[in-house]
């Protein structure tokens, strides 16, 4: 029963990631693409966590942590590009 629930949630996560890929390609403006990319990182983390519950293994926990870190840095870089127009500033701006 629990196995079926986990499998079903994996299927729904895959479907929503497909919808996010559509928004990532089609999205008219940059903020929508950033939002889609960030949500895709979060959903990938959720999918890997569910997979590691399904397989009863702790081997994927480092992947979860690393994906979280990389998604965090990527979201900050993209939102900084939208707000200031430049990713890495030469000088601190205050």
């Amino acid at each position: 029963m629990v196995k079926w629930l986990l499998f079903l949630s994996l299927c729904f996560l895959a479907l929503s990631i497909l919808a996010m890929i559509y928004r990532l390609v089609k999205g008219p403006t940059a903020p929508e693409r950033v939002q889609a990319l960030d949500a895709m990182g979060t959903y990938l983390i959720a999918g890997i966590a569910i997979l590691s519950v399904l397989l009863r293994s702790t081997a994927f926990f480092e992947v979860v942590l690393l994906l979280g870190i990389l998604s965090f840095v990527g979201t900050i870089a993209l939102s900084r590009y939208i707000e200031r127009g430049v990713v890495i500033e030469r000088k601190q701006s205050d």
Binding site: R90, Q92, S93
Partner: peptide, 10 residues
């Protein structure tokens, strides 16, 4: 890279 993003390159 996170330090670069937050505090600037200099």
């Amino acid at each position: 890279v996170l330090l670069f993003l937050v505090y600037g390159i200099e």
